[in-house]
Structures are given as structure tokens and as C-alpha cells.
Amino acid sequence: MTEKTDTARRARMGLVAKAPPARLAALMAGVEVPGFDWLRAPEVGGVMVRGRMGGTGAPFNLGEMTVTRCALRLATGEVGHGYVQGRDKAHAERAALVDALMQTDRAEAVQAQVLDPLAEAALTAKATRAAKAAATKVDFFTMVRGED
């Protein structure tokens, strides 16, 4: 696979992993799902999250988070992987389906029906939070400055 398609795949897998499961389910309702076989049935596990000392130094173990993963193969042969935060097996399944479908000739439709709305919602959510934070930014006025 070329570097460019890797980058695109990386981006969409991250988008689907971070999407609210209910939102992804609602968008996927309009997508015709082909038959598939499990390569790895959905499995819940833990991922150890690491941080860095001082934010930039040597790594240390911060604690785990729950993650659900699965892998499937469409009847047409494409393999999709799903890795999502939390314990929602249906979320992981949908993530893997999106990954697989994006390798088929239905990629454009899935992009328009699922990925674009998810990306837009994620941007809006992030912007709203940033705007609320910006409204709590302090403006200082120096009232009196102590001299010597």
C-alpha cells in the first residue's frame, strides 16, 4: 500500500474510533452491509497508556484504557480492522466495516454518508469546546504597580 493511502486510512480509522458509537450507528444504518466473515471476533481488552516525564522526557506507564478490536473479511475479499476506545463490540464491528468498505468501489458513498458527517461533527464539537475555553481566557489590567 502506498504512503498516501496509509495516511488516509490512518485518518479515517482514528475518526471512526473516536466517533460517538450512537452517531456512527445512525450513519451506518443507511449503508448496505455486505456479508463478511470474522478474522477476529470483537474482543475487549486493555491498552496501557503512556505519558512522558515533564511531557517531553522518558516514557512512563500512566494507566490502562478499555479498547475493543476486531477484524473481518468481506465476501468480496477486502479485510477491515476495527480498534475503538471502550467496550462496545458493535462500534468495533462498524469501524472494521468502514475500513473494509473504503477499500471497495463503494468508498465514495461511505465517505459521503459516514466519514464526512463524522468529521464535520468532530470539528464542530472541538470548536465549540475551544470557544467556551476562549471565553474564560483572562485579560489582565495592571491596576497599580509597586515601585521599589
Binding site: 474482543e43 486493555g46 491498552v47 496501557m48 511531557g55 479498547v67 469546546r129 475555553a133
Partner: peptide, 20 residues
Amino acid sequence: TLPRIGTSEPVDTGAMACDR
């Protein structure tokens, strides 16, 4: 009870979307 799926890359707190 959770099987360990893996280990994350160290998180980049410099890129945090800060609420505070």
C-alpha cells in the same frame, strides 16, 4: 480480567485541546 491488547505511544500533552 482484561487481556492486554498493547501499549500506546506516549501521549503528546503539548498537543492537548485545553479546556483549562
